[in-house]
Design a protein around this nucleic acid. Structure first.
Lengths: 414, 414
DNA sequence: TTGCTTTGTACCGGCAGTAAACAAAATACG
DNA sequence: CGTATTTTGTTTACTGCCGGTACAAAGCAA
C-alpha cells in the first residue's frame, strides 16, 4: 500500500481535544479559565473556542453577563450546545434494556427502556434496543456521532465477547460487540460511521461516568466497586482513562477472598467477594429468601432501608460491610487509589454505616492506616448509560475535527 | 508573580523525547525505523537525530555498513553515545549499598558497593553512598545529569518517606528522599541540578528497568513480583509508566491471602503472601533453619538449586509455587497484565517448575482460563539499580533539551 | 471622570513538521 | 559490466499552530 503514515490527523489544533474535554467535564466555564487550564495564550484559547463553536459543539454566550463581584472585564460564558449532536448509549441489565441519546456533558436528551425477561438470544435484544434508539433519533431529529453499549459482564478485548454473563442467560463468549455493530449496521443509523459501536462492562462504564460527571470528579486514580444483581464488579480509572487491562478483564474483583470459611464459589475457591457481598448474600445473611417480585438489588435495598432497625438486618449489614471492607482494603493495598466510590448495594451499605466501613478499610490497609482513602457513594443517575456515552464520545473528545467527517458524507459523495 | 504560564518547554521539537526513548530502549537502530516508529517523515527523523547528536546523547555512524542482504541503500546506524552523560544511581539493600554511574540504555559505566551492616541512621548511609558516587564521577570525569535511589521499602509520596523498612533497622517514616537530596547537595555534585534526586521502591524500579531493557520489553501492562529478603514486593508498569499509586503505596501485594490457615502476619490477618512465599518461608517449609552465613535469598536459592532432588526441598518448592500462584492469580484477576515477570526467590521458583506455576495461575484466574499470561523470569543484572537510573533519566527522556541547562550554567553565569 | 484590572481580538513571526524533488548507496537483472 | 530498482538521506519550499505583542472592550475603584 502506498499510504505514507503521517501524523496529520493527530496534530491539527492539538489543543482542541483537551479544550473540549474541559468544557465537557465542566471545568472550563469561560475562555479565561480555558486559557489557564490549557496553559496557552488568550489568543489561542479564543481561537480554539471559536473553532469548537464552528463545529457546533459549544456555544459562546457573549451577552453582558452578571458581573460576579470580581474586578475586570467579565468573561463570556462557554456552554455545551444543547442542540448539538448526541451519541446513542445502551445498557443491558438483568431486567431489560435501556437506550438513551446522550449529549456532551453527560446530558441525557431522551431515553426509552424495555422491560421484561431478556431472551437467551443476544442478537434479538440488541436489535430491539438499537431499533428503539433509532426511533429516538428519528423522533428528535438529532445528529448521531456514535454508539456504545454497557453490559453486565466482563467484556473480553480485543473482540468484545461477553464472558460469563451470568444474569443474562446468554452463552459465555457471546460476540456482543460484533452483534451490536451488526445491529447498528442493519438499522442504518445515519452518522454512526466514525465510531462503530463500542461495548464495555457496566461497572467500568459507571466508573468512567462518575469520574467525569459525578462523585469521581477530580480524582486521579479512581476505584469503583458495585454490586447490582449477582456478584461484585470493580473498575479503575487511571489518569482519566479506564484501565480495563490487556484483555479487558481487569478489576474482576469478585474473587478476592474475604471470608476464608465462607461459601464455595464457582471459581473453585471459597468465601469470594462475589458470593459474600452481593444482594443475595445480604438477603441470606438477614435470613430472608429472595422473592419473585423485583430485582435482587431492589429487594436488598428495600430491606436495608426499611428494616434497618431489625437486629437481624442490622447484623447482616454489619457483616457485609466487614466483608466488603476487607475486599476494599485488599484493593487499596494493590491499587492505592485516591478515591473510592461505591455503587449498587455497596452504596446502600456505605449509607447505612459509613464509619464502620471506613474503619475496616483503614484497619486492614497500609495506606488506610497512614491517612485513609475517601470512600463515597455514586451520585449519577444511570451512570452505566452515561458511561457508555462517554465511550462513544471519546473519539470526538480526542479530536473534535472528526465531527466534520460525517458532514462531508452528508454534503455529497463524490 | 508575573510568570505567564506558557507551554514553551513542552513543545520545542516534540518528537525529540519519543525519539530518544526509542533509541534508549533499543527500538530505533536506524533513522529509517525511527521514521516509521515516530510516524514522521524522513526529513523530520533526520533533523531529530541530528539534534540528539548535537546534544551529545547519540552518535550517528555513517560509515558504509555491512549490507544485511536487504535491498536499497543501507541505513546509517544510531548508537547511544558511550561517552555521553550519566546519572548517579544508588541502591540500599539488606547487606549494604551499591552505587553506579549509568548511561542511556541502562548501561552501567562504573560501579562501587559497600558491604556490611547498614547502620540505623539512614543519613549516614546515604552520605556514604553519595560520597562513593561522587568519587566515581571524579574518577571517570563524566558529566552527571541526575541521581536516584532505590530502597527496599514502600516509598510514600509525595515526600518520599520510607514506610516499614523492615530489613534496614531504619525508623518507619524516615524521610529518605529529603536525606538523599541533602546528601547530594552537601556533596556538591556538579550538574545534579535539573533532577534533584529521586527515590523509589526497589521492586518498582526493577520493574521499570525490566520493562525498558529486560524481560518486560514490549509489554504494555507489566506486573512484577519479587522477593529478595523478607516479604514480597510487587510493581506495575502501565503504558511505560510506573504505577505507584496516589501516595506511592500501590502494589503492596504482600497481604494477599494465599493460605487461609497460614501463619499470622503483622498486618493482623493470617496466611499473607508476605509470610507464606518469601525466602524465610521457603527455608521453613523445607525444614531448615536460616544460618548466619549469607542473605536469606542466597540461602534459599542455594538450597533450591543444589538440593532440589531432596524430597523435602522439592515439596517446599511446590508448596511455595502453589501459594505464589494463588497470589498471582488474584493479581491477574484485578490487573489483567499482559506479562508477568518474577524476581528474587520467585524467579528461582519459576525456574524450578515453570509448568506448575503456570497451571496454578491458569486454574485460578479468569483470564488464565481463557488464554493465559506469559510468566517470565527477570533477566537484567542489578535491575533495581538500572531502574533507579531510569528514574533519573526520565526528565531527559521527556525533554532532551534539558541537557542544555547544565551547559548554560557551566558556560558562564550572568 | 480617570485609572486599574481582566478579558477578548488582530496581527506578526518563529518553527516544527509535511511534501516533494533530488542525491546517494546498495541490490537485481539484463 | 551497466542499467533499473529500491531504500535511505538531504535539501528546499510551504503550511499551520501557537507565542508574543499591541490594542480594544468592559467592568470595578477612587
Amino acid at each position: 500500500m502506498t499510504h505514507t503514515r503521517t501524523t496529520r490527523l493527530e496534530r491539527g489544533r492539538s489543543a482542541l481535544g483537551p479544550a473540549l474535554e474541559l468544557v465537557h467535564t465542566g471545568r472550563a466555564p469561560t475562555r479565561a479559565v480555558l486559557t489557564s487550564e490549557l496553559g496557552v495564550t488568550r489568543a489561542t484559547a479564543g481561537a480554539v473556542a471559536a473553532e469548537l463553536e464552528a463545529l457546533g459543539l459549544i456555544v459562546v454566550d457573549s451577552r453582558p453577563t452578571s458581573s460576579a463581584g470580581s474586578q475586570g472585564r467579565p468573561s463570556h460564558r462557554l456552554f455545551l450546545d444543547e442542540n448539538g449532536p448526541v451519541v446513542l448509549a445502551g445498557q443491558i441489565h438483568a431486567d431489560g434494556y435501556r437506550v438513551a441519546l446522550v449529549g456532551l456533558g453527560g446530558r441525557i436528551v431522551a431515553t426509552v427502556s424495555g422491560c421484561g425477561t431478556i431472551p437467551a438470544d443476544p442478537a434479538h435484544v440488541l436489535a430491539e434496543a438499537v431499533a428503539a434508539g433509532s426511533g429516538l433519533l428519528e423522533r428528535t431529529g438529532r445528529r448521531c456521532l456514535g454508539a456504545a453499549l454497557a453490559i453486565p459482564s466482563a467484556v473480553a478485548e480485543p473482540d468484545g465477547e461477553a464472558l460469563n454473563p451470568l444474569h443474562l442467560a446468554w452463552p459465555s463468549g457471546a460476540p456482543v460487540r460484533r452483534l451490536f455493530r451488526r445491529a447498528l449496521a442493519e438499522a442504518g443509523i445515519p452518522g454512526v460511521t466514525t465510531a462503530v459501536g463500542f461495548t464495555g462492562n457496566d461497572v467500568n462504564l459507571a466508573a468512567l461516568a462518575e469520574h467525569r460527571h459525578g462523585a469521581g470528579r477530580g480524582a486521579r486514580d479512581l476505584l469503583c466497586i458495585a454490586s447490582g444483581h449477582r456478584g461484585v464488579g470493580g473498575a479503575l480509572v487511571l489518569d482519566g482513562r479506564l484501565h480495563s487491562g490487556s484483555s479487558g478483564l481487569a478489576l474482576e474483583v469478585g474473587h478476592l477472598t474475604v471470608n476464608p470459611e465462607g461459601a464455595p464459589c464457582h471459581c473453585g475457591s471459597r468465601g469470594c467477594l462475589d458470593v459474600e457481598a452481593d444482594p443475595l448474600a445480604f438477603l441470606g445473611a438477614a435470613g430472608r429468601t429472595p422473592g419473585p417480585e423485583g430485582s435482587l438489588l431492589r429487594q436488598a435495598t428495600d430491606l436495608l432501608r426499611e428494616e434497618y432497625q431489625d437486629p437481624s438486618v442490622r447484623a447482616a449489614a454489619d457483616l457485609l460491610i466487614d466483608r466488603l471492607g476487607l475486599g476494599i482494603a485488599g484493593l487499596v493495598n494493590i491499587l492505592n487509589p485516591d478515591r473510592i466510590i461505591l455503587g449498587g448495594l455497596h452504596r446502600e451499605l456505605l449509607g447505612a454505616d459509613p464509619e464502620r466501613l471506613r474503619a475496616v478499610v483503614a484497619e486492614r490497609s497500609l495506606w488506610g492506616r497512614s491517612g485513609g482513602v475517601p470512600i463515597l457513594p455514586c451520585t449519577l443517575d444511570h451512570n452505566s448509560l452515561v458511561g457508555a456515552a462517554e465511550l462513544a464520545w471519546q473519539p470526538v473528545l480526542d479530536d473534535p475535527l472528526v465531527v466534520l467527517e460525517g458532514e462531508d458524507r452528508e454534503a455529497g459523495p463524490v
